[in-house]
Design a protein around this nucleic acid. Structure first.
Length: 973
RNA sequence: GCCCGGUUGGUGGAACUGGUCAGACACGCGGCUCUCAAACAGCCGUGCCCUUGGGCAUGUGGGUUCGAAUCCCACACCGGGCACCA
């Protein structure tokens, strides 16, 4: 998830002021001492442990009775050599929020685990030549050390690692739940596969070829059930990435046809792979978004990814066969002057596999075939075979690059336009994708930009059937582009049985759809862009599938008693990778090299038999699809989570109809990967009755990125940012002028700053404050090490306001604070409370700073009550110094569970407010008035003001706008 | 190409639903105090331009309004997502 491929964990960068005349001054050394002591205290006391209502983590009933808050971060990958300061931004934010929630009476669950399977961890292992388990565990140890140093208040008992067999036992278990279920359209939900088998057995549901279920072989039955299971293996075109040696999900392939990891080319290859039938949930995944408190941008991305479009399926007869197309413009059916199939379409398969021609491809070109249609081939079979071969060898990158130039070839076949009766030629072209719709389109060149380009290239006829609303006329041969607007009238669309002429697009769609359905040659339908989730990888470092194959090749689920199926320890874990550009390669699973493990004798209920294990592993998303549930009940060996515990923390409630985590903070890069997959698993588990929540994350918040300046020399090579000097408005490295741009922080750009360095120089509380003060949480901003000192100074002034630097004694005094201090205090409490609740930590810090500056400026000893409330205010942000001061102020309990201050409304408003008096929007006078002044009194006072009278200079008044108590605006006549 | 965001001092950023002279808080910078000196700390100043007083300022140009950083339109630039999806 949040990647950590960067920056060595450099120890102490030094630079802390060492000599001081004041032995109790708040220095980096003192901060380090305070922080270490309190971190030990918290750990020993279990300060952050949140009680469950039952089970091994059950605890204090009073705490359980409080309102709960489940606050989560997207958990990190332990790859690379540690964290840079960008990584903990979200962790600190959730920690501050969680601490505030704890202090306002909530039972807060906050912990952090590690997403440790998958490509990054494995690549790091391969690079360093260590076994992934060894390097991953070492990385986890290092990251835990770094995170502990930040003082994050996590319930350590609940931390999980996805590579722990006790954890992935349940990942495998969930896979089996998915495997052993099917999507029942009547229930609009997943149901156990047994319910489907029962329907087949009883004859309520016919088998595909009509034979009785009992008459089918085990393999035949398995194949039929495979068509229904929510996890299934199938031969389908998949994204094959030779450079990584594995196949990838659509979500892991970038827009330009490369792997998200490693940026290698991706090819389409037909391989037998495991898939998750996420498409069955397309509508529910789409509709479920409405109830979620997520950023609209993320919801929009998911909606676009799911890509629901309403249209129609229409059959076009071709000899004895028919081509079924999906279209969203069934209203333009009369304008369909040719058809296009995807190169992989089954109706043209066979042309290139030695079985003669495909089913619709004739032996010879029809009389009068246009030269440009044949591609220079002697027969349609040759042409189709050649084009299919060429398309298959093209990487997605090449296909993208050539997107503008339409290519294709005539199949030699003609189809019948079902409304006009016209014979239209059938082409194959790679601008039609097998994976979308039916892999075939009706082409309406006059009204579709792609069809227009293709028709121009192949000199195909166009017919205008939607009257252009501009002045281009109705002859498409004179047009520069297609007329694709929806806001127009249908023309030229009358046949023997139906006419659409004169109708608007919407009415025409409805009419033709109904007619098609009546004729039995089409129907209105909904199509999704979303495709099934490719779930297997040819990698070592992942969860093994709990699946074995018998001698017939039938897949069997391992029984729960055999879980976890542990990943075998092997010497040779490297994936077989290839020349990244070589499409003619085949994946090889590392686990398959291990014959002893692959071949196994098991008793699956009918005696001991020999089986072969599945040797693919699960993708790295598997472990992160459900981890929120395991945090709740991490040691349960009987269930993935106890239902009562799940209900307590995640169950549906007021305002959260689908349940879920109260706050989930992480980067926006997971909009359609992790966040979609996790929702899918959550809905399946909900359908099957395992959890009460149907959505995993009620509120989602995307934190921004911490960026850093990248300095490059004249060759464009990044130079170490720490050694660049700024002078005369330019930047210099070793005397050479370098350029500066804002980019990501990372080792490769030589601009990484580690939390260890900052902690060593200033302490963790300063780092926490700085990260929170930099700006709003959801906005990206550049790191500036020089500016960190500002928050360090805040803590020093805070310390000095409470503690004598020479003696270490508390300097606060008893007695009532003065009026101005009380107002400053309560305004701060009021503002900070609101800011905390709304994740506006930057302004919360500004308000704390203001209060602290007020006390500093007063120059007198701080009243005890004010000091205590100030310490409580800053406690969520800077917990270590707060604990230390709290203790020094005489408290023996931890500040973590103290009550957050509550503002007294009497002091939140000022005694008098400044009211401006404007004339036509220009300020002419200022009045000091009581905040409670009425509009009428204020107006009277304002009009009586000498400066106003003078400015009006006897002019009449047209209008007076009064906004008591702050503004009066006079509009002269 | 389509869809989302965004653009405020030298810098990061404030400004609740349009309502005090926009610039809180912090960095940086300048000055002063303390000091033998420095560091630390404290105090003062710091949007721009004309050196009274004023004028101009929230990417640019229009508009709505008594009043616009905030609402509307157009444009420019930056960032992100999708991209031959029928």
């Amino acid at each position: 998830m949040s990647e950590t491929t960067n920056s060595p964990a450099a120890e102490s960068a030094g630079g802390a002021p060492t000599e001081t005349t004041a032995p109790h001054r708040y220095t980096a050394a003192l901060a380090a001492d305070i922080e270490a002591r309190w971190q030990e205290f918290w750990e020993a006391e279990g300060t952050y442990e949140a009680p469950n209502p039952k089970g091994d983590l059950a605890g204090d009933a009073g705490s359980v009775a409080r309102p709960k808050k489940f606050i989560m971060d997207m958990f990190p990958y332990p790859s690379g050599a540690g964290l840079h300061v960008g990584h903990p931004l979200g962790f600190i934010a959730t920690d501050v929020y969680a601490r505030h929630q704890r202090m306002t009476g909530h039972n807060v669950l906050h912990t952090l685990g590690f997403d440790a399977f998958g490509l990054p961890a494995e690549q790091y292992a391969v690079q360093t030549g260590t076994h992934p388990r060894v390097s991953t565990e070492a990385n986890i140890v290092n990251m835990r050390r770094q995170l502990r140093r930040l003082g994050l208040g996590h319930d350590g008992r609940r931390s999980i690692e996805t590579i722990d067999p006790a954890y992935y036992k349940w990942t495998q278990w969930i896979f089996l739940q998915v495997f052993n279920s099917w999507y029942d359209p009547e229930a609009d939900a997943a149901r156990p596969i047994d319910t489907l088998v029962a329907q087949f057995e009883a004859g309520d549901r016919p088998t595909p070829d009509g034979r009785a279920w009992s008459g089918l072989s085990p393999l035949e039955r398995a194949n039929i059930l495979g068509e229904y299971r929510l996890a299934y293996a199938s031969d389908a075109p998949v994204n094959w990435c030779p450079g990584l040696g594995t196949v990838l999900a659509n979500e892991e392939v970038t827009a330009d046809g490369r792997s998200e990891r490693g940026n290698y080319p991706v090819f389409k290859a037909k391989l037998r792979q495991w898939n998750m039938r996420i498409t069955a949930y397309a509508d529910r995944l789409l509709n479920g978004l409405d109830a979620l408190d997520w950023p609209e941008a993320i919801k929009l991305q998911q909606r676009n990814w799911i890509g629901r479009s309403e249209g129609a399926r229409v059959d076009f007869p071709v000899g004895d066969d028919k081509i079924t197309v999906f279209t969203t413009r069934q209203d333009t059916l009369f304008g369909a002057t040719y058809m296009v199939l995807a190169p992989e379409h089954p109706l043209v398969a066979g042309a290139d596999n030695g079985n003669g021609t495909g089913s619709i491809v004739p032996d010879a070109w029809p009389e009068g075939t246009h030269d440009v249609w044949t591609g220079g081939h002697a027969t349609p079979g040759d042409a189709v075979a050649a084009y299919r071969k060429q398309a298959a060898s093209k990487s997605d990158v090449e296909r993208q690059a050539e997107a503008k130039d339409k290519t294709g070839v005539f199949t030699g076949a003609f189809a019948t336009n079902p409304v006009s009766g016209e014979q239209v030629p059938v082409f194959i072209a790679d601008y039609v994708l097998m994976g979308y719709g039916t892999g075939a389109i009706m082409a309406v060149p006059a009204h579709d930009t792609r069809d227009f380009a293709f028709a121009r290239a192949f000199e195909l006829p166009m017919r205008c059937v939607v009257e252009p609303s501009d002045d281009r006329g109705t002859d498409p041969s004179t047009w520069d582009d297609a007329f694709a607007s929806y806001d127009a009238k249908i023309v030229n669309s009358s046949g023997a049985d139906i006419s659409l002429d004169g109708l608007g697009v919407t009415e025409a769609k409805a009419k033709i759809t109904e007619w098609l359905a009546d004729q039995g040659i089409g129907e209105g339908t909904v199509n999704f862009r979303l495709r099934d989730w490719l779930f297997s990888r040819q990698r070592y470092w992942g969860e093994p599938f709990p699946i074995v194959y018998d001698e017939d090749g039938v897949a069997h689920a391992l029984p729960e008693s055999m879980l976890p199926l542990e990943l075998p320890e092997v010497e040779d874990y490297s994936p077989r990778t290839f020349d990244p550009d070589d499409a003619d390669t085949q994946p090889e699973t590392p686990l398959s090299r291990n014959e002893d493990w692959v071949n196994v004798d098991l008793d699956l209920g009918d005696g001991i038999k020999r089986y072969r294990r599945e040797t693919n592993t699960m993708p790295n998303w598997a472990g992160s699809c459900w981890y929120e549930m395991r945090y709740l009940d991490p040691h349960n060996s009987d269930a993935l989570v106890d239902p009562e515990i799940e209900q307590y923390w995640m169950g549906p409630r007021d305002g959260q109809p689908a349940g879920g985590v109260d706050l989930y903070v992480g980067g926006a890069e997971h909009a359609v990967l992790h966040l979609l997959y996790a929702r899918f698993w959550s809905q399946v588990l909900h359908d099957l009755g395992h959890v009460s929540s149907s959505e995993p994350f009620h509120k989602l918040y995307n934190q921004g990125m911490i960026q850093a300046f990248v300095y490059r020399d004249s060759r464009g090579i990044a130079v170490p940012a720490a050694e660049v000097e700024e002078r005369d408005g330019g930047y210099y490295y070793q005397g050479e002028k370098v350029s500066r741009v804002l980019g990501k922080m990372g080792k490769s750009l030589k601009n990484a700053v580690t939390p260890d360095e900052i902690c060593a120089e200033y302490g963790a509380d300063t780092l926490r404050l700085y990260e929170m003060a930099m700006g709003p949480l959801d906005v990206s901003r550049p790191w500036d090490t020089r500016a960190v000192v500002g928050q360090y100074r805040l803590l020093q002034r805070l310390w000095r306001n409470v503690v004598d630097e020479a003696t270490g004694e508390v300097t606060v005094v008893d007695g009532e604070p003065d009026e101005a201090t009380l107002r400053a205090l309560h305004k701060a409490i009021d503002g900070v409370s609101q800011d905390m609740a709304n994740l506006r930590f930057n302004t919360a810090i500004a308000k704390v700073t203001e209060l602290n500056n007020h006390l500093t400026k007063a120059g007198t000893p701080v009243p005890r009550t004010v000091a205590e409330q100030l310490v409580l205010l800053i406690a969520p942000l800077a917990p270590h110094i707060a604990e230390e001061l709290w203790r020094k102020l005489g408290h023996t309990d931890s500040v973590v569970h103290a009550d957050f201050p509550v503002a007294d409304p009497a002091y939140v408003v000022d005694e008098t407010v400044t009211c401006v008096v404007q004339i036509k929007g220009k300020v002419k006078a200022r009045l000091e008035v009581a905040p409670s002044i009425s509009d009428a009194d204020l107006e009277a006072t304002a009009l009586a003001e000498p400066a106003v009278v003078a400015a009006l200079d006897g002019a009449g008044i047209r209008k007076v706008i009064v906004r008591a108590p702050k503004l009066v605006n006079i509009v002269p006549a």
